[in-house]
């Protein structure tokens, strides 16, 4: 009897803890979700009382018409391919490099130097893509760029960077890693710091080398964090960093075959049409794909390691 009561009490307390957040989610996230129906409507003003909700209710249903624009182009395949390939590549590279950096930082003997490195690694996170694009331009500018001047001084042919798509997968990859590694390695580093040091001591006493400790202590302990970040990144497989693909190549048309991704395509369509239904439809499709992928990834992770799964 008393055990049951304490069970109810516990549930009550824990519920009270999540409640403020839950309420916030309700108002700020779930209520606006009513707007998703915009994807299936032709949003028009309801002249008698044009509030948002009235407009929404009285607009005509259009079925899937708002989604058509995503596939009305001969370039659908290109932007889908680009979006997914870049994402897959960057999820893998990002994971490996960020974990490696986190372990390195953790293993350095001089903590002051480690802190300094870490601070510096975070700087790109502060710089917007616009600023980064100017920096890149200083190197790749067709007339005054450092790289082309270097090539010319060596008697080599100069490269028209902003009109030659083949270099851009590499350039974009470097840019993406440059900006995000600092951010994700700090998450891994914090997770490593949380590992119980007695585990290392025990391993050391058992005669494990540093490499063995990394493989048998650090990485297994990082597994929940790796899995969670992986799952969440998989959920964004159909999204892309707009600024990176739009601003960094200076919006150059000749590069579209390498830089057009779903977000830039939608953006370009919407500046042309400014249709709120279409923008909602585009976002909804991205989210739906992400949702399917994330559920799948979660299932896979759950099979391998129950505890590391998202839910």
């Amino acid at each position: 009897m008393s055990k049951k009561r304490s069970g109810i009490k516990k549930t009550l307390f824990l519920t009270s803890m999540v409640l403020p957040g839950a309420i916030w989610f309700f108002f700020l996230r779930y209520l606006p979700m009513a707007g998703i129906v915009l994807a299936f409507k032709n949003y028009k003003v309801y002249p008698k009382n044009p509030t948002f909700w009235n407009n929404l209710m009285h607009s005509a249903w259009t079925g899937l018409k708002n989604f058509e624009f995503l596939f009305a182009t001969t370039d659908s395949w290109i932007y889908i391919r680009n979006t997914i390939c870049y994402n897959v590549l960057w999820i893998i590279l990002g994971l490996v490099i960020a974990v490696a950096f986190a372990i390195m930082l953790h293993e350095l003997t001089n903590k002051f130097v480690a802190k300094t490195y870490q601070t510096l690694m975070f700087f790109p996170y502060f710089l917007s893509w616009v600023v980064a694009s100017y920096f890149l331009l200083a190197f790749l500018d067709p007339t005054r760029g450092l790289v082309d001047n270097f090539l010319l001084s060596k008697g080599l042919e100069k490269i028209d960077w902003y009109n030659t798509p083949k270099y851009w997968p590499v350039i974009l990859t470097i840019c993406n890693l440059w900006k995000n590694i600092g951010y994700s390695s700090i998450l891994y580093l914090a997770a490593i710091t949380g590992i119980d040091t007695t585990q290392y001591e025990a391993a050391a006493i058992d005669g494990a080398t540093k490499w063995q400790q990394i493989f048998y202590v650090t990485i297994p302990n990082l597994r929940p964090m790796i899995c969670i970040l992986l799952i969440m990144n998989v959920g964004k497989i159909f999204n892309s960093d707009f600024g990176l693909f739009y601003t960094v190549p200076l919006n150059s048309g000749s590069l579209f075959s390498a830089t057009q991704v779903i977000d830039t395509y939608i953006y370009r369509v919407l500046t042309a049409t400014n249709n709120i239904g279409m923008s909602t439809a585009g976002g909804l499709l991205q989210n739906a794909v992400g949702f399917v992928c994330i559920m799948f990834a979660n299932k896979v992770v759950k099979k391998i390691d129950e505890d590391s799964a998202l839910f």
């Binding site: 624009f69 001969t74 395509y265 370009r268 369509v269 919407l270 279409m278």
Partner: peptide, 9 residues
């Protein structure tokens, strides 16, 4: 609108 979007790109 769909065609406009495609052509705009």
């Amino acid at each position: 609108e769909s065609q406009m979007g495609a052509v705009a790109n």
